[in-house]
């Protein structure tokens, strides 16, 4: 068995190392060929550039671009936000032009490169989140419906209190009634977002923020326990909304004397 392990180690080392290669590009960059490939054999994109004393690993935008090979896949702003978080969790960043990159003062180590490949691979898994995507689209549509319906002067989308940077306790919209009362609105299409919304609403209260916390939710997306807790946390200010029908929510906002556009 010990001999087998040694043989296998030798075999893997040889085959594994052989599967890596750096190809020089026309502009001095290096294209890294690795054993990590898409189904069509194209390498997960890893390009090493050197500019002004800084090394940069970049995918040149190919990771997100490949998602568009599937005509049924839509890279919505909500999904971009998910991608951004996944990429940030890997220590890298997603630029405005959808390029994943990271800068290094020294030549990136093999582990830096491996981490970069892992992040690129994770972006490739986003289509598998299609169900999640439909939930995100539900929220996006609901936010847009609210934004379209409420007078511009009485709404701030993606609002967060000054007490934090918005990473944790953001509300989808802060609306202001005719009487000057703040209404913090969360729009929810899944249990995870419901949990975050409840935590945020409780934090707002703890910070002494005045105003009403309100939940617009696709109720069939929540389990019974989460529903009950949401009703308690939001003091019954829970409005059930269905995809493509934000009517009850907008009606409720009108009842609260939030100015609506005609």
């Amino acid at each position: 068995m010990t001999d087998d392990a040694a043989d296998l180690t030798q075999l893997l080392k040889s085959a594994w190392c052989d599967s890596f290669e750096a190809f020089p590009g026309a502009d001095g960059e290096l294209f890294l060929s690795t054993p990590f490939t898409y189904d069509d054999g194209d390498n997960l994109p890893v390009v090493l550039e050197f500019h002004g004393g800084t090394w940069t690993l970049t995918d040149r935008g190919d990771a997100v671009a490949r998602l568009g090979y599937d005509d049924e896949f839509s890279f919505t702003p909500a999904l971009e936000e998910v991608a951004r978080r996944v990429i940030a969790a890997g220590g890298h960043s997603l630029q405005a032009d959808l390029v994943i990159s990271n800068d290094y003062p020294d030549l990136p180590s093999v582990y830096d490169i491996a981490d970069f490949v892992r992040t690129v691979a994770q972006v490739g898994a986003l289509p598998a989140l299609r169900e999640r995507q439909s939930q995100l689209r539900f929220v996006e549509d609901a936010v847009k419906a609210v934004s379209d319906a409420v007078a511009p002067a009485n709404q701030v989308l993606n609002w967060h209190p000054e007490e934090e940077d918005g990473a944790l306790f953001k509300t989808d919209a802060k609306l202001v009634t005719e009487d000057g009362e703040d209404v913090y609105l969360w729009l929810v299409g899944d249990s995870s977002k419901a949990e975050r919304s409840m935590t945020s609403a409780l934090e707002y209260r703890r910070w002494g923020l005045e105003g009403r916390s309100m939940l617009g939710v696709r109720l069939d997306s929540l389990g019974a326990t989460t529903r009950r807790r949401a009703v308690r946390v939001f003091n019954d200010d829970v409005v059930s909304i269905q995809p493509d029908d934000p009517g009850p929510l907008i009606e409720r906002l009108g009842d609260l004397r939030i100015p609506l556009v005609a």
């Binding site: 290669e21 190809f23 294209f31 060929s33 054993p35 054999g41 194209d42 994109p45």
Partner: peptide, 21 residues
């Protein structure tokens, strides 16, 4: 020629040159 390619069954690698699938 934007990316390298690997023929996974045969194990041969193509540099980032024009290629036909």
């Amino acid at each position: 020629p934007s990316h390298p390619h690997v023929n996974k069954v045969e194990g041969d690698r193509l540099p980032p040159v024009c290629h036909v699938h």
